[in-house]
Amino acid sequence: MADKKRLLIIDDDKNMRELLELEFKDQDYDVITAENAFEGLQVLKNESVDLVVLDIKMPGMDGIEALEKIVSIYRELPVVIHSAYSHFKENYLTWSAVAYVIKSGKFDELFETVKTHI
C-alpha cells in the first residue's frame, strides 16, 4: 500500500475516467477519480496524492482554473494535463503543469509521462 503511487484523475467524461482508472490500476497505481474540478480539490484536501491527471474542458470550473488553484496550494504536486484540445498547450496558463498529453486511444505516452514525473 505504502509503495503504491497515488493518482488523482479529474475528467468529466465518465467513459474516459473509468477507462483511465482501469488502465492505471493495471499499471499498479492507486487511483482516485473526480468528475469535476471542485470534487478534485475536495479530494486533495483530504487525501495525499502523488500526481494529478487533469482534463481541461469541463463544466463548472475548467481545468485551467483548477490547475491554477492546485499549483498555488500544492506547489510540489505534479499535474499532467490530458486533453483532446491541443491548442491549450500554447496557453501559458497551462505551462505550470509538468506535461501536456493529447488524448489518444493509445495510452503509452500518458503512462510514460506519469512515470517520469511521479
Binding site: 474516459m16 477507462l19 483532446a84 489518444s104 486511444g105 495510452f107
Partner: peptide, 17 residues
C-alpha cells in the same frame, strides 16, 4: 476535430484494452 478526438480516444482505449 477536437470534439471527435475525446470520444475517439475512449473508443480506441477500450478497444486496445
Amino acid at each position: 476535430a477536437h470534439e471527435v478526438r475525446g470520444p475517439l480516444a475512449t473508443i480506441g482505449g477500450y478497444a486496445s484494452r
